[in-house]
Design a protein around this nucleic acid. Structure first.
Lengths: 214, 214
DNA sequence: TTGTCAATTGTCAGTCGCTGACATTACTCT
DNA sequence: AGAGTAATGTCAGCGACTGACAATTGACAA
């Protein structure tokens, strides 16, 4: 099945990702040149660009895997569940399977450090948002399908997903910038953010809703 | 007061923006080179980069003005208003003053066409999201100030703003891609999206909430 | 095993976005 | 009118990215 050719490709791709991660983490994203990454894996720059369409892609590859997983997991939720509930549960499931999902490519610790680099680097922050966009559209379509609404007439699927994704991005930003690169913190802050969506919209904004110290 | 120097600078800057808009709209963003823009205004490429830090900036300059206006307008809302209400009213006010605000730089029609170009161009979509990010943070700070909550302990300001901004972006995407570049459509769709945030989160997703045909 | 085919890679040249350095021009103000 | 400063042009160069073509290397049949 998996010929030598395929395995070799897989190996260089993974090597490129790991080398890129290490360089980005130690030197920063902007200060790292594509030539350096290619050189670290002993391939030509041209080969790098045959594996990744641009420098951002190698930095966000793992993130892309995670959001891909998220989408898949979302579709397995019971169909009678409220979409927001489905999103919440899918989020939990994604956290649970994170290490397993990405472990073969990059150790969890490296991924968490890379997360910080991403949030520190404007170019990567926005490239990351583009990933969310793609996911948003897919999730909205899936929700529309499940709830039987016409996505071109009823804005609710896109609105719900947009709100969710917006809050997730904001949470991710906080996590990446807070200095604590532990999975637990990431999960706690993200959950807290999503949980506060209802209260934030509710009429009563009076007293403290705290308890989300980074 | 306004010496010849200042006026001249203003004029070349505006000329660059307008030339860029026309080129982007007719040829597309990627296909337009910075040299072309500079040449159209008869300045050197180097001068272009003294007015705008990069090619994206000239494309999103007007958008930046609008979001800047939005932030300012937000602060004039009564302090006892619910933040979401303030955002909604500020949105209305921004629509009302749009033509007046940008008219001196670029005619409204050009701006609306540019909007389509932006949503069609991945690089600009993401650069646009970066603008939103900056605004998000400022709005969240302002909301925290007004409501007297500690932004580092209570996630609600950031969550509320993130949800709002996410929905706005989604609406903007729909508007930009729907083919209809009229102000009325833009305003209608945007309002519809924001208005559906509550219903989308409510427990009852049963029947049609439509009426937002593009 | 060997030879053919196709996939992968390297090399090279070139475009485009963008920047620093320095000389040149153009306004301002006395 | 002339000194001083701000704006601009020119040039050289870096890094991301691409197309074209040649060289290498697995795959697979004879």
């Amino acid at each position: 099945m998996t010929g030598l050719r395929e395995r070799k490709k897989q190996r260089t791709r993974d090597a490129l990702i790991r080398a890129a991660h290490e360089l980005f983490i130690t030197q920063g994203y902007e200060a790292t040149t594509v030539d350096q990454i290619a050189e670290a894996v002993e391939v030509s720059q041209r080969t790098f660009f045959r594996y990744f369409t641009n420098k951002e892609e190698v930095a966000l590859f793992v993130q892309g895997m995670v959001t891909g997983r998220f989408q898949e997991a979302f579709r397995t939720r019971p169909i009678d569940e409220h979409p927001m509930e489905s999103l919440r549960h899918t989020l939990d499931a994604t956290w649970d399977g994170l290490s397993l999902a990405i472990g073969e490519i990059v150790p969890l610790e490296l991924h968490m450090k890379m997360w910080q680099v991403i949030e520190m680097t404007p170019a990567l922050v926005t490239a990351n948002l583009r990933l969310s966009l793609v996911m948003e559209e897919k999730l909205a379509m899936e929700i529309a399908r499940r709830t039987g609404v016409d996505i071109d007439r009823d804005p609710r699927p896109r609105v719900l997903v947009a709100a969710f994704a917006g809050v997730m991005s904001a949470a991710g930003r906080q996590v990446g910038l807070c200095g604590d690169a532990s999975l637990e913190t990431a999960r706690r802050v993200t959950n807290a953010y999503v949980d506060h969506l209802g209260p934030a919209l509710s009429a009563d904004w009076s007293r403290d809703h705290g308890s989300c110290t980074v």
